[in-house]
Nucleic acid binder design. Sequence first.
DNA 1: GTCTATAAAGCGATAGAC
DNA 2: GTCTATCGCTTTATAGAC
Lengths: 237, 237
Amino acid sequence: MKPTGPEVPLTQPASNQIQRGADTHAGESRETILDTAEALFARHGYEGVGLREIARLAQLSKSALFHHFPTKMDLYLAVLARIFGDLEGCLSEASSSEGSALARLLAWVDAMLDALAERDTRAPLLMRTLFEGEVLEHDSDTPEVNGPLKRILEAVSSLLHEGIEAGDLRPIPVPHATQSLIGVLLFHFASGGFGDEILGRPVFSATEIRRHKEFVLSFIETGLSARPNHPQGALGS
Amino acid sequence: MKPTGPEVPLTQPASNQIQRGADTHAGESRETILDTAEALFARHGYEGVGLREIARLAQLSKSALFHHFPTKMDLYLAVLARIFGDLEGCLSEASSSEGSALARLLAWVDAMLDALAERDTRAPLLMRTLFEGEVLEHDSDTPEVNGPLKRILEAVSSLLHEGIEAGDLRPIPVPHATQSLIGVLLFHFASGGFGDEILGRPVFSATEIRRHKEFVLSFIETGLSARPNHPQGALGS
DNA sequence: GTCTATAAAGCGATAGAC
DNA sequence: GTCTATCGCTTTATAGAC
């Protein structure tokens, strides 16, 4: 593509909230590979990344890489599975909260935004997964990816239905509202350099993250609520 | 990728509203190539498509393809330029309309949704352009793509600023609202098979397009308006 | 303007030594 | 578990005949 600089940190200890396993050394290179691949797949997509580049940045040979992940697709799915697992966590956090369906929906949006803002690779990869359906060939999907996705979507759908029946939400078509929610949640944090340009500042800077969350929550609240009394959507964030 | 069936119609006369040029035969194969490439790039992305496949589906040899477009990137940019030119048309339509800033914003959204719904390749390609910024290497961008994009974004930004100052819109951060608008507008029509699954029916079927437009317009209106009196966003659509 | 043939490099994946 | 070397194929792009 181009003589890229050290686009990905040579070692990427920027692993996030969920520390998987208490082992100090076992599977160490596996995590390094996953981190490296996650960054590259997020930026360039599945087809845009070569195993050669992943191996180089993860500091091992291509063959060693094949020992951990028998095929390129296995590696890609492992990356996705890790992300989807994390995102499903947001759901349990939020759905256990109390209040109206609208409040629980907003709590979920809040948790999702936090999770997406935490690592700049998540939204791009999620976006690619949803709208490049060809890569995850139809039904050959892995349960580690499809399961969490399906459960998240069902939970959102339930919340919307519940809110409509309770009179919290306007009578909206649930699937279309779901699509718009996904678009609003994902695009901003997936927009990379374009988003930085629009904002004039880094999308993932703390102040812009805060500002974005505030706007999105108020947008969704006033846009979907049956009684948009709230001039400023101040949530317990 | 896989032994694809005739994923792209062998000849693709599904060209849309804008009939470019009055010539009956000149540049005929050029248009065929662009149609074919547009469909493939939309589905698989820049890196996911080979010139071999494009040439096969456009029914000419790879070398003949190189005669029309000297490099793969030239072809990709030509595809984008055609789309961005069309989309800029929506802007002039809508901005010439009368009424409040909010009304003109909604008129633009209305026109954009029509344009995106007209051809199932537009939203995916636009989405890819915005969030795979690496492909259009930064500043080496062609004016045929970057110009329309810049003008569209500036127009939207102006409308939002104007609406806020006039008191039509809530006091929202314009760049963040722009990002959310883009997400809402693009994702649904870019979501491919995923969207079909969510809806249970084809995203690009007439009834679902109508339903989606209705919802999105009401969502944006109530979500951004300073006085969301409208329980159902009935616009002159 | 379209073709066949080919170049030069990269791809995913494998074999087999250590 | 990691390595070197290689296989077979595809990629973008070019050369040159017609």
